[in-house]
């Protein structure tokens, strides 16, 4: 059964460039508007229970597509259906069937206790009181939020708030969960816990997940399929395993050492940058697994600090364009 269908969806924004002739002249004779395409002829289908990463560089059209799928943005052309509803025509009905988390935007009431926000959302989504109580107990256990349900949202840490945001998005048991950068700003521990919780919940309840993230760790931990877009066009739609095999097999390992000129020679390991007391390696994990490289480094060098980083999404997209797995040696925290 299909949860999301997108068929030749396009969206252009009409933009009028700022006039260089002054305010009055701009009012009297405005510059001609131009159409800037954000999403172009995008098509894909997602089955019920699938967990799909929807990725691309900044400005690729991810958020625009997500907003069209929620119904708050109308397409220029094309068709889409989410949980059986056309989003921009049946937005209210659809709202009962989807849960949405925008990492930077809160749907909780800042000054209310978390429990108060959940109670308001229960009423807004018309969830039966007993069903909501049982649901909240389950979500509180899964996301480990029971300890601060009675604290005002304003007093929560970012990690606690994001866990509450996701639990809030799931209170009405949506069939489809749309997540836009859900782990942005979280520390490594909070990210890991959130990924585990989300994966377990989606698997147990058969929730369809469509996730956008710049963090390849989110994609690898939560999703089993990846859709890549760039400049609004579909670039790739493949199972995660294939993407991992073809484009995500490299890791960056940064070593801070006591040696002034550290060196590590191993098969599948290339030096990205070598600085005094610092060595950045690009590791092809298909040839040398990261744990083997780390083990060798600990054995041969006096390692004072060590960081393992995922390949940045931009590099993956570039590699997809090139059609091979060789990526530039750039690093972002994983």
């Amino acid at each position: 059964m299909t949860a999301i269908v997108v068929d030749r969806l396009s969206k252009s924004f009409r933009v009028r460039p700022p006039s260089a002739r002054g305010v009055l002249a701009a009012l009297l004779r405005p510059e001609p508007a131009t159409d800037v395409p954000a999403v172009r002829d995008l098509s894909f289908a997602i089955g019920r229970g699938e967990r799909v990463a929807f990725i691309g560089p900044n400005g690729a059209g991810k958020s625009t597509t997500l907003k069209m799928l929620t119904g708050i943005l109308h397409p220029t052309s094309g068709h889409a259906a989410v949980a059986g509803f056309v989003p921009w025509r049946q937005r209210r009905q659809l709202a009962h069937r989807i849960g949405i988390v925008f990492g930077q935007r809160s749907q909780l009431w800042y000054h209310l206790p978390v429990r108060g926000s959940f109670d308001l959302l229960r009423r807004i989504y018309d969830v039966d009181r007993a069903a909501a109580a049982a649901r909240l107990a389950r979500l509180a256990a899964i996301f480990d939020i029971g300890g601060f349900l009675d604290r005002p949202v304003a007093e929560l840490s970012l990690g606690q708030r994001i866990r509450c945001e996701i639990a809030a998005a799931l209170l009405h048991a949506p069939a489809v969960l749309l997540l836009d950068e859900p782990t942005i700003g979280l520390d490594v521990t909070a990210k890991s816990a959130l990924r585990d919780h989300l994966t377990a919940l989606a698997r147990d309840e058969g929730t369809t997940v469509l996730l956008t993230s710049h963090d390849t760790g989110d994609i690898e931990k939560i999703c089993d399929r990846v859709i890549v877009i760039d400049h609004g066009r579909l670039l790739l739609d493949e199972p995660l395993e294939r993407l991992r095999r073809d484009f995500m097999q490299r890791r960056a390992v940064v070593l801070i050492t006591a040696e002034e000129k550290p060196a590590l020679d191993m098969p599948g390991v290339a030096v990205s940058t070598a600085e005094p007391y610092r060595l950045t390696l690009s590791v092809d994990t298909a040839i040398s697994p990261v744990e083997r490289v780390v083990g060798a480094a600990l054995l041969r060098l006096t390692v004072q600090d060590l960081v393992i980083e995922n390949p940045p999404l931009e590099d993956i997209v570039k590699a997809i364009y090139r059609g091979d797995g060789s990526m530039e040696q750039r690093h972002v925290p994983g």
Binding site: I72, R92, Q93, I100, R105, S106, Q107, I124, Y125
Partner: peptide
Amino acid sequence: QSGQIAAGLMRPLPYALATLAE
């Protein structure tokens, strides 16, 4: 200005009514 209105628009309750109620 912040785009936070998107969260309100995505709910089944009209944003204007929710704001007036609050």
